[in-house]
Nucleic acid binder design. Structure first.
Length: 255
DNA sequence: GCGACAG
DNA sequence: ATCTTGTCGC
């Protein structure tokens, strides 16, 4: 017998159905031409990440209070139900993030104001990156901050921190290539849901930190690695095992 | 056929 | 994401 394996996503028929679902979901995403959500003092910004080992995943949510700082970083363990394939990350990781968000909802002093994820928002072939999926699923504003592009950009931002250049997909501007640290590889920022392209870049550049990844996102990454190794830091809180949250739309498509 | 390809 | 050692640079 073999260990429980994830559902293969290499199957053309499965990919086709999921791609169709992505295009349908993308129609509901709202990206204003300007503004949209903007952080206000006291707002809770949640940055999320996940680490994997086989079909096990350690998922984290770093809670940052805008204008003040770090509150706590939550971690949970989950089972992965779908393999990875470029362009379909939202279906693999989305349900895991949704589970943890559900878990911390009652713990937090107030509602989450914004979500930030590893991976893209609308800077995606079908406008349905991880950030857009979780934003749409939760109804919350969301931003995608990816470490590598899904589309090659013709230009690169100046070496100085803060400089940025438009990120295009098929001639359409869908995000920004942002220099978060002088002389270091840029990150790829795109809105997921309920805010503009400019706002998304502004938010990422507004987050604290002197590394390529903003501190909250970096802390989410660190926490997930710690948890995976069975370690905990004083600023982390373990919520234990939480089952992935599969929306109706996925229950029929994913066994 | 070959290279690309978020995490 | 994960598999892995040393090493160059601020």
């Amino acid at each position: 017998m073999h260990s429980e394996m994830e559902i293969g996503i290499s199957n053309p028929a499965v990919r086709q159905r999921l791609a169709r679902l992505q295009r349908r979901l993308a129609e509901r995403v709202r990206i204003p031409s300007s503004d949209g959500y903007g952080p206000e003092p006291g707002d809770l910004l949640v940055c999320m990440d996940a680490q994997y080992s086989g079909n096990k995943a350690w998922v984290t949510a770093d809670v940052h209070e805008h204008g003040r700082g770090h509150l706590c970083t939550y971690v949970c363990r989950s089972e992965v139900h779908l393999g990875y394939a470029s362009g379909f990350l939202c279906f693999r990781e989305g349900p895991l993030l949704a589970a943890l968000l559900e878990g911390i909802r009652e713990i937090l002093p107030r509602q989450v104001a914004l979500l930030v994820t590893d991976g893209h928002g609308i800077a995606h072939p079908r406008r349905m990156g991880l950030a857009s999926w979780i934003g749409l699923t939760t109804g919350l504003p969301s931003v995608g901050c990816a470490k590598s592009p899904l589309f090659r950009s013709a230009t690169t931002p100046d070496p100085a921190r803060g400089s940025l250049v438009p990120l295009k997909a098929d001639g359409r501007v869908v995000g920004s290539v942002v220099r978060t640290r002088t002389g270091v590889k840029p990150v790829y920022v795109s809105p997921g849901h309920l805010l503009s392209i400019a706002s998304a870049a502004g938010i990422v550049l507004g987050l604290p930190g002197n590394y390529r990844l903003p501190d909250p996102l970096r802390r989410a990454d660190m926490a997930a690695r710690f948890a995976q190794r069975g370690e905990m830091a004083p600023w982390m809180e373990d919520l234990g095992e939480l089952p992935p949250v599969l929306p109706e739309s996925l229950q029929n498509l994913i066994p």
